[in-house]
Design a protein around this nucleic acid. Structure first.
Lengths: 246, 246
DNA sequence: GCAAAAGTGTTGTCCTTACACCCATGC
DNA sequence: GCATGGGTGTAAGGACAACACTTTTGC
């Protein structure tokens, strides 16, 4: 507790009575949220970036962020950013880390809370033309505005770890997908090659895939079956998700 | 970007030139750090708490926290809190999560960043008598000030997971420890019973324990060997740490 | 000599890995 | 009919789980 705030506030029993006064004595910091929005198409992991609107970062790419409004929970702020940029509610979203280096923003100290989000590119193409907003492949990104390259790297590492513990990947795929698509996704995220037979065995043994009875269409080879992920069964039965340990 | 801030700042090319002005237009929020400091003795996992100095929380226990000073990185703020309370530098410390519910502080909106810290109780008894500061066993804690019970629960879950991925536990033990102590620690944190022989096999096979040649003393039974953890070898060779998967 | 914990190996089970052939479709 | 990827099974090796007896010390 700050000595000054305590002194002004102190009573004989040493307890602070006026909590509003106490809080108003705290230094205040501008807060933003930054969303690392991952997508997947053409067998590549993509991230959604916008051209920076600050002159000091002219031409550089930036994460999608906004400051946190008064009395807004940060999860809500992140959802708001997603909604504004992609037009979508109900997108997968998780807090990853808070970045606080005093020089991370050229305009002064600004704290940012990084969120990671996964969405299906096909479902979300609607509002993307409004701004200079583009999907980028991960390894094409060299430099970014602020410390956003660092944030992106940490979120990517987070995703690689997280996807082996939870079935997040389905958020990046269409509702119905072939096992080949699912495997391509895991290979792209983890940046490794997997054995097709073992991959299939693993997913079938978890028993969270529903055979839709439909098949791929318009492929220049034997079509594969299309599956859905059984989100309900997974939610009821999380224990059965064994780590994917490639 | 906030419409007002952009408008005041806009040039013909649409880029913002005055970043200070931009940042000064952001709402500002008081920030605190809260440290969940775990210790281990009497074969129990403990957490270091202080009596709240707010009258609204009279008698309730609280995490060790402080607000973040101007231009201070949050990791530094958390280290500062640890240093002030325990007198120790170089304690294990990691950011866990940021809590932002608008009503989490009775004095108004205050954002807090939770840090988790692990320290050896024996080494840190020095400055603990200054305040009403005590080690608590985890399951004795029912109610706390602010949302600190929630923060504590999340940090404990974090620890349970984290200790299976990294050898954090050694930070809680004396430099030299017996395998029995090490096993007790894992049993306490994970809240399960382990097989002694398998536990020993696992740790010896990782080859990160150094036999000090010394033995336990003053035990009313056959004394065990004392080991040190080989931090250097671990740092050079993190790959060999296989998840502990009890 | 007795209580209490240290120290030590083996076996069965299960998961993981590596690996090769036939099948269905579009062209 | 050929190119392309879909679909399938098995065997070997490695990790994990279960389990009991002898040893050393303090008292």
């Amino acid at each position: 507790m700050p000595k000054t705030a305590v002194k002004e506030n102190e009573k004989k029993d040493g307890l602070i009575k006026d909590v509003q006064k106490l809080v108003s004595s705290y230094p205040r910091v501008p807060i933003t949220v930054d969303c690392v929005i991952f997508g997947f198409n053409d067998n590549e992991l993509k991230v959604l970036l916008i051209r920076s609107d600050l002159e000091v970062y002219k031409g550089k790419w930036s994460l999608l962020g906004d400051f946190s409004g008064d009395n807004e929970e940060l999860d809500g702020a992140a959802k708001r950013v997603l909604k504004q940029r992609t037009g979508m509610d109900g997108v997968y979203l998780e807090q990853v880390k808070t970045f606080s280096h005093p020089k991370r923003h050229p305009g002064g100290r600004v704290l940012t809370v990084a969120y990671c989000s996964l969405l299906n590119i096909e479902h979300h193409q609607l509002k993307i033309t409004e701004n200079e907003l583009h999907w980028h492949t991960l390894n094409g990104i060299k430099e970014m505005a602020f410390d956003h390259k660092n944030i992106l790297d940490e979120c990517y590492a987070w995703l690689q770890k997280r996807i082996q513990e939870h079935p997040l990947g389905f958020n990046l795929l269409p509702d119905k997908f072939s096992l080949r698509e699912l495997q391509n996704l895991y290979e792209a995220i983890l940046d490794i090659k997997l054995d097709r037979r073992n991959f299939r065995k693993k997913f079938f043994s978890m028993d969270f895939l529903i055979d839709t009875g439909e098949m791929e269409d318009d492929v220049p080879h034997r079509p594969g079956k299309l599956y859905k992920f059984n989100f309900q069964k997974y939610e009821k039965n999380k224990r059965k998700w064994m780590g994917i340990d490639f």
